[in-house]
């Protein structure tokens, strides 16, 4: 547990392939979708909340300062995740409205 993932060649594979996939995925995005995409990606980066959850579930509840810090992180991170997805949904819902045909 003391040595991080980077020592593992798999981690490097994950990084390189994720970069390539990321570039490939949004190479030809129309400008219309830039804002929702940014917002959706922002929600995905909220996956960092997992770190806080791991802290909360591995710490003893008596370790007050760390528990408080981790709780704050989980709360803020969850706001980022849920708010990000809801706001993206709200933006995209506008495009999905029935279109007027004269």
């Amino acid at each position: 547990m003391e040595s991080f993932y980077l020592s593992n060649i798999d981690g490097i594979y994950v990084i390189v392939f994720s970069v390539l996939i990321g570039i490939e995925l949004i190479k030809n995005v129309p400008a219309v979708l830039h804002t929702p995409l940014m917002s959706g990606a922002n929600a995905i980066s909220g996956i960092i909340v997992i770190g806080g959850i791991i802290h909360l579930l591995t710490l003893s509840i008596s370790d007050v300062s760390s528990i408080v810090a981790a709780s704050l992180a989980v709360l803020i991170g969850t706001i980022n995740v849920s708010g990000g997805f809801f706001v993206t949904h709200r933006m995209l819902a506008m495009f999905a409205k029935p279109k007027n045909k004269q």
Binding site: G22, L25, A41
Partner: peptide
């Protein structure tokens, strides 16, 4: 986490 973060970073 690594994959999600890198995807967001590269996009």
């Amino acid at each position: 986490m690594l994959l999600g973060g890198i995807l967001v970073g590269s996009t």
